[in-house]
Amino acid sequence: MRRFGRTIVTAALAVAVVAGTAGWAVGDSRPAVTGPPPGSAAWRAGSVGGRPLPDPRAASPREVARFFAGLDGSARRELLRAHPLVVGNLEGAPLPLRYEANRTAVLATGEARYASLAGPGRQILAFDPRGRGLVAEVFGDLEEAAHVSVIVPGSDNDAAAHDARRTPHTGPAGMARALRDAAGGSTAVVAWTGYTTPVGVGPDAAGGRLAEAGAARLARFTAGLDAVDAPDPVLFCHSYGSVVCGLAARHTDATDVVVLGSPGMRADRAAALGTRARVWAARGPSDWIADVPHVRFAGLGHGADPASPAFGARPVPASDVRGHTGYFAPGTRSLAAFAAIAKGEVR
């Protein structure tokens, strides 16, 4: 009976899994953005030069890449003008075309909260205004990069918050800029808020529903990178983003999966992730994520602690990291280690 009581208490504590950056505020449940981008029905009904267009839901990124390779510049621009939301979010489409399509799509929304995303020099690789909005931005030259990293963030991130004022080196864009600066010009970094993240603390943060939807989107995103001949990526997964990466790992070609401030990866050990990627884990001494119960019960909680030796991840030094969001602060041992991993310097 005592053991049952402890189990119930542990299950109750699992509800308090905090997987984001907004503190202890209660969060609401949110529907996940899934499926092909807005405008896909009109796209499927269209054609270019008498050729049918690849189905955004069914065509693989490789098939999409081959389709665009067979089009001349005028045909590509015709599709961009008619279907900017589809072209901008279509994995396997040429990168410069996606940047231009997303600039067009952002401006077409007419919403002030997104306007900065269309600014000069921005390389917006994905933009979807559904729900709270999804966005991915490239820092560096993804077409010429020798190394590619992808930042997968945790809770309370969306397209509207992408350019919000934050403490420097936090948030997806801040982390990506810091990593790119530390790793150097041969590395491109993508800030990928390509899934619906939890808001605050609640069933979404403690459960795996949004992570499962996010994992499918992350796997397709990495397949899109492969389709345009980008290097195999390193995934840097913060907080609830590490739950997404844990579920997606076996379906990506990532060389490394680095989790930081992780509540768990929905696996008992690194070997159970089913990936050939090297798995790394970092947790700073003052990160409150250490107080989150590493359990799974009745669908709540995310399992074993990736930072524990028993999990089997490679440790990343983080003794000088402050709080839950300080892992990319310049001068920290963690950022130096991240840069070395991103550049493939650690064997």
Rank of each mutant, 00 (worst) to 15 (best):
H302P: 02
V15G: 10
A277R: 02
D128G: 10
D287C: 04
T197R: 08
P172N: 12
L97D: 00
A270G: 04
R322T: 10
H324W: 02
R51W: 01
A191C: 01
A272D: 10
D204S: 07
Y327A: 00
A42T: 12
P129H: 07
V257T: 05
G208E: 11
D232P: 04
G88Y: 00
A277G: 03
V33N: 11
G110E: 05
F127Q: 06
R3E: 09
H324M: 04
M265T: 03
P129E: 13
G140L: 01
S242D: 05
V15Y: 11
G35N: 12
A69I: 00
G171T: 03
H162K: 13
A136K: 12
E144L: 15
T332K: 02
P330T: 07
S47P: 00
T109H: 03
G194W: 12
Y195L: 14
V17A: 10
S74H: 09
D256H: 07
S286V: 04
R266E: 09
G23I: 00
P233T: 06
A112T: 06
T252E: 03
L85Y: 08
A105K: 13
L235T: 07
G200D: 11
D158H: 15
G49D: 02
G246H: 02
G110H: 01
A249H: 06
A118L: 09
A339M: 11
S334N: 03
G119H: 09
A164G: 00
T275Q: 05
T187V: 15
D128W: 06
L235N: 04
W280M: 04
R217E: 12
C245E: 05
R266A: 08
L85T: 10
G323V: 09
A65S: 11
D156Q: 15
V346A: 08
A42I: 14
G5S: 09
L107K: 14
R6W: 03
S186R: 14
G49M: 11
I8H: 07
M265P: 03
P309F: 02
A213G: 06
Y327W: 01
P96E: 13
R98F: 14
V258N: 04
E345Q: 13
F68P: 06
V17G: 09
A211C: 11
V152Y: 12
A161V: 09
R103D: 10
G303A: 04
